[in-house]
Design a protein around this nucleic acid. Sequence first.
DNA 1: AACGCTCTTGCAAACGTTTGCACCCCAAAA
DNA 2: TTTTGGGGTGCAAACGTTTGCAAGAGCGTT
Lengths: 338, 338
Amino acid sequence: MAKTQTTIVDIAKELNISPSTVSRALKNHPDISKKTIELVQACAKRLNYQPNALALNLRLGRNNTIGVIVPEIVHYFFSSIVQGIEEVASNEGFNVMLFRSEESYEKELKITNSLINARVAGVLASLSKETDRYEHYQQIIDNNIQLVFYDRICIGINTDRVVVDDYAGALKAVEHLIETGCKRIAFYSSPTHLEISKNRKNGYLDALRKHKLPVNESLMFVCDTRDAAMELTPKVLAMDNPPDAFFAINDHTATGILRAVKQFGLKVPDDISICGFSDGDLALACDPMLTTVEQHGYEVGKTAAKLLIDKINGVTLGQFTNRIIKTKLMVRGTTRVI
Amino acid sequence: MAKTQTTIVDIAKELNISPSTVSRALKNHPDISKKTIELVQACAKRLNYQPNALALNLRLGRNNTIGVIVPEIVHYFFSSIVQGIEEVASNEGFNVMLFRSEESYEKELKITNSLINARVAGVLASLSKETDRYEHYQQIIDNNIQLVFYDRICIGINTDRVVVDDYAGALKAVEHLIETGCKRIAFYSSPTHLEISKNRKNGYLDALRKHKLPVNESLMFVCDTRDAAMELTPKVLAMDNPPDAFFAINDHTATGILRAVKQFGLKVPDDISICGFSDGDLALACDPMLTTVEQHGYEVGKTAAKLLIDKINGVTLGQFTNRIIKTKLMVRGTTRVI
DNA sequence: AACGCTCTTGCAAACGTTTGCACCCCAAAA
DNA sequence: TTTTGGGGTGCAAACGTTTGCAAGAGCGTT
């Protein structure tokens, strides 16, 4: 009804007392008499008073908003992370400002500026694929804003990090393939400069070495989408010495492989085994259902948010922490039982 | 480096001029001399000045943040919507504050309070399944905050709305089933009090009537998850007079039906046809790929955000608008060709 | 010499809070 | 009666901006 939102001054005028008294009364300050407190709080309720967070944050030089930079929103892993972040934040009384970098450095730059303008208390960030300079993140730190990286972390900047255990996840997945009888395991990966590509590749390689299998460069491909997998896979299967298993960097790619293999006339998992890296529900829609590595994005988000809020509240003293979230191999129908 | 972020006053002191001059110089005010403007802007760059949005918004009584209430984040349709919103908002210079209601009325109440505290310029909301009172949304309006509902709209409140054309989508889907020879079409739906259930059911019913097929209550079920579908479907197939097609309220449910039908020993689409309502990539991972109704969440988000921002900017005069986003039938492998 | 004009700059108030300090009043102690 | 003291309240400054208004400088016109 009110053309403008009710303020402390409105209440003060209504009750013929000073704004400072109202302010104190609203928070049950011991200096204020019971009578006044009751009066003020009743009036506040009646006029539907809601404190102005803008004024409050300005005055107190703090902010109850945290910024989140995410490369993509429509993406199972990232949206799980956002959900984890939102949950922790809202429990701790923080609001979440969401930004999508769209895998672009330019956008990321704009976003970090917006975050500084908004004077957020902290930032949770995952690098875009394009990003290879980090001054804008240093600027965030220089502006006294807490910063925690998650998943696509930044090594160039001194700060806290939360990552998925890509190495161990890949190691376990490939070992599972080997233990169920696979000998020539192809690896479909994202561009090699990304940390996750490197780490998962190392897991893949170490699994091979551990089980004394030859490492074969001709079985390693850059291929990380469903469409690319459907195009590449028939060619790979037609090679002289084709693989008997595929390990893919994500489930989208794995579903592409699965479809291509079936179209090629081979049986999964009898002829060919397939293992993905989790993108969510997709794995259960496949036939057979996809063996994959669960990444626990929700945990990543929760952990990162907790870390950040602790830093904001000054709970954590001193050094930077690296948190690693464990992965879990979900064995389903695209790999054989022992 | 600076313990605190640089302000206009810092620049003023540095240059021995007044803050007002700095403020004007930064925005190329014609009153200020070229020399001063250059001086100020150089100094601002050097000290890495970023305007304090808090102070600005307080002073100007405006806000460049919009709030988004979403029932779930990890959900293809809703995350598409959020992506659409984020895109439009960031193009128009608005920040997005994201809240998840978790399908809970209590949470929704807390969120609307937070939004009022934060003095956001506008709110985009989709009702939680639980919500059946709307005072908290009326309060948003009373506080002079623009409000637009999307998808799960609220009829009780006088405001703008953006919805998917559920009725037409369902109608077209069921007609497609009928035209490809199906005569007994089962309908798996969400709880019946939801608008989307009602609208899609009406589409389903009208398709049957239009083609002179009998309406059969025993073919309509409340079932809207993959697991529920896998449990219910075998029973339905074992009925005396089983259906020859299934129309499901979402793709998760459809994938459950598909799996159950195959396990039952029937062929899709030869014996049984299946049509879903789109949850995204899921449809492409199925075998055969799922025929489904594309909902264009991204469009919903973009449209709703545009509508809201127009209202905030006072572009739209007067009446409330209802925008309807068209659906599109994606014919794939779980239905027959004519 | 007085006036009026333009160009540039600064003062001060305002947005809605919080909070250190001062103040008043009344009762109890001296 | 005068001090002391404490409970209750208000003043004013501060957070970082913007902006209406005033004012000074410089210069040309009467």
